[in-house]
Amino acid sequence: MTLIFAHRGSAGTHPENTMSAFKEAARVGADGIETDVQLSKDGEVVIIHDEKLDRTTNASGYVKDRTLKELKTLNASATHKGNFGKEKIPTLEELFIWLTDNQLFCNIELKNTVFLYPGLEEKVIRLIRTYGMEERIILSSFNHYSLVNCHRLAPELETAPLYRDGLYMPWIYAKAIGGSAIHPNIRAAPDALIQSSVSMGVPVRPYTINEETEMKRLFKLGCSGIITDFPEAAVRIREELKST
């Protein structure tokens, strides 16, 4: 079965990377969530996509220049069109506490390409082990050096390189860096590549799959998973295809 990962939570309908977006993903029947982590000024692992605060909050400047206490005063739903009130930037620990009450998978993207956050990998892995999440976590990043570091620190964890451009035999590359899956941009993942990778035992979870026709194509293809802003639509389409 193709697993459905809610991109930054149910980001198509709720403020991205907030607890309301994650709870909505669970409510609609997603199999997992995808989220992003960075470090605050005082070294806490926080959940937010952009290095800058401007797009998703009521503040400006960089995440790395604010303490956790300062980040917690911001409104993470300030720019969302829906009426969600004030949403706080979650910590990874807060997300894990919530995950203990369900069975969702969690794909954590390490946002360490613009800034190399020292100790990010170690802190994320420590939290994963503290909350016993080893079987439910996938670590991904566009920084493949970071994934190699994660594999050395915690070989029991699944890692998956993110990439945007065409890679030749990416399943071989993934294994070469200790990865066990690939997370390509859908434009870099033609059907034949998906089928080849899956047949070689390397799951493929392309991003970001928001069009219904594309969802249907990937479900029918037997793609390992999809990462989508609209998990409710994806779940509905998967159910419809099951009954045909």
Rank of each mutant, 00 (worst) to 15 (best):
R217C: 06
V204A: 01
D165W: 15
H151R: 12
G178D: 04
S199K: 13
P161F: 06
G201D: 10
I226H: 02
D165N: 15
V204Q: 08
A174R: 03
P206C: 03
D165T: 15
Y207C: 01
H183G: 02
G179A: 08
P190D: 06
A192K: 13
A181P: 09
P184K: 07
G166T: 15
I186H: 11
A188N: 09
L167F: 12
P155M: 02
L221H: 01
Q195L: 15
A154C: 08
P203M: 01
Y163K: 07
L153M: 12
A189Q: 08
T213I: 14
I194E: 07
S197D: 00
L218R: 07
S197Y: 01
I194D: 03
A188I: 09
G179E: 01
N210Q: 11
G222Y: 07
I227L: 06
L157R: 00
K220I: 10
Q195E: 15
A174D: 08
M169F: 12
M200H: 14
A174Y: 04
P184T: 07
Q195R: 15
R217P: 09
P206A: 04
I227V: 09
M169G: 04
R217I: 06
Y163G: 09
R164E: 15
E211T: 10
P190K: 04
E212Y: 08
V202C: 09
R217W: 09
P190R: 11
A174M: 05
A189W: 01
R152L: 14
R205A: 10
L162W: 00
S196G: 02
H151E: 01
A160K: 00
W171T: 02
G179D: 01
L193H: 00
E214F: 03
E211A: 13
S180P: 12
N149F: 04
H183W: 02
R164T: 14
R164N: 15
V202T: 11
N149M: 10
N149C: 08
V204M: 06
T213K: 14
T208W: 03
L162C: 05
R187G: 14
I182R: 03
K216C: 09
Y173A: 05
S197I: 02
E214Y: 10
P184Y: 07
G225M: 08
I177S: 05
T208Q: 03
C223W: 00
R152M: 13
M200Q: 15
Y163A: 10
Q195N: 12
K220V: 10
W171G: 06
I186M: 14
R152T: 11
Q195M: 15
I177H: 03
M200T: 10
R205Y: 06
I182D: 05
S197P: 04
A174C: 07
E156F: 05
A176N: 12
I172F: 10
I182T: 05
R187D: 14
W171C: 09
L162M: 11
I182V: 13
L218D: 02
M169Y: 11
Y207T: 00
E211L: 13
A188V: 10
I182M: 07
N149S: 13
H183Y: 01
A154N: 04
V202G: 04
G225R: 05
S196V: 13
I227Q: 00
A176M: 10
S199Y: 00
R164G: 13
G225F: 07
Y207V: 00
I182C: 05
V198Y: 02
G178F: 00
L153N: 02
N149V: 11
K216R: 15
I177F: 06
